[in-house]
Design a protein around this nucleic acid. Structure first.
Lengths: 213, 213
DNA sequence: CGAAAGCAAGAGCGGTGCTCTTGCTTTTTC
DNA sequence: GAAAAAGCAAGAGCACCGCTCTTGCTTTCG
């Protein structure tokens, strides 16, 4: 696993070969099949490790900045995710980039995958419980089906939030990962040299829209 | 190229093999190297085609809804991008997902890559020129370096926009592609059954934040 | 002590991208 | 019109990949 992690960091998920990790640990390729069922299972293990890694990074940030402003805490947690992504670009793309060829992530991966999301939502949740959340500007109509789903999502995290509030979080959530992905895949090239400031400003704006202050 | 496009749609970018497209057109693998320099060049051509495809889809939507509300036009353009992504998931992930192993997108791809972004920004630009854009709630300080870059970005599209306005667009832009990516990679599984409504609502919210109405 | 299990190696299958050489056909040039 | 040049497709081959199956050695267990 160490060798696999190292290779993932160096050549990325698609360049990771079972044969080369076997070579690195001084084994013949067929021998490693005793320990790992297939290349896909190796990837699955790496995915779970990566989810746990980014998840605990986010949790730690949320925990560590608990005494600050809700908005600052939100920003700190988001920045922790971005920092992790910059430090482990291949791991990040393995989690949030294109899925590998015929690979379908097994159910083992969804639980650790929710940790980072829960860390982010916990910031919002704490603010809501403490009554520090600025109420949504105006409740809009989002359609019956979606409204039902949004209510269920709020129930999942045990918070009484309006549809608009849940929607604001989903927007902030996807914006966060969208920008990180764009930064990693160089899609924002030439736009700015100060990616950290750009990220910070957009997350602040999204946090503001969610009612944090 | 037809065969390659077909294979890309079926098995995705990482599953696309030069040998198999050679088989499909009744050639031996070495023969196709006369027409394409490498697998990477084949991918580059597919990328450019895809960028043009999604770009014209967005442009057409922006053009077709020019008589509606700015907000409705924005939503329509964004929905066009999403529809294209759902129809061509592998192409979308080739453009906006993880980059292929050692592949670095050549400069030929950046020009067609900007079309879809320009189509989106044109909606905002037209609204601003016509004076229909609600001014940004409060101009915040984003730092000197970022502020300079944001001003340059506004100049690129020849519009006199505040830093906060440019930032709002960047947030909306990344949110859009973030959500589409999450939907395609099934990261939103179990959250809602009505992905279209979710997308529409978040895009409307982001459009509202940009000052569209 | 012997049987059973664990472990690593080797050979091999079909697949990949890519290169180089060999021919044949078409086009250009004189 | 013949000769030279260019275009084109095939074949063999290299190193790599994931994966399977068999063989043999070592460790553990009954």
């Amino acid at each position: 696993m160490e060798a696999a992690r190292r290779q993932l960091a160096e050549v990325g998920a698609s360049g990771l070969s079972l044969r080369s990790v076997a070579r690195e640990i001084g084994m013949v390729s067929s021998a490693v099949y005793r320990y790992v069922e297939s290349r896909d299972e190796l990837l699955t293990r790496l995915i779970i490790e990566a989810y746990d890694s980014v998840g605990s990074a986010a949790e730690e940030a949320a925990r560590h900045h608990v005494d600050e402003t809700d908005l600052d805490r939100w920003i700190a947690t988001a920045c922790a995710v971005r920092s992790w992504a910059l430090e482990h670009p291949h791991d990040y793309l393995l989690l949030y980039g294109s899925p590998v060829p015929g690979y379908a992530a097994p159910d083992d991966t969804v639980a650790p995958g929710t940790r980072v999301t829960f860390a982010l939502v916990s910031v919002l949740r704490d603010a809501a419980i403490a009554g520090r959340l600025r109420p949504a500007s105006m409740p809009e109509d989002h359609g019956a089906e979606l409204s039902h789903d949004l209510g269920q999502l709020a129930g999942l995290v045990d918070v009484d939030a309006t549809d608009t509030a849940v929607l604001a979080f989903l927007a902030a959530w996807t914006q966060l990962f969208g920008l990180i992905g764009f930064e990693l895949t160089n899609q924002t090239r030439g736009m700015t040299t100060d990616h950290a400031a750009l990220f910070r400003s957009t997350t602040a704006a999204m946090g503001h829209h969610m009612g944090l202050r």
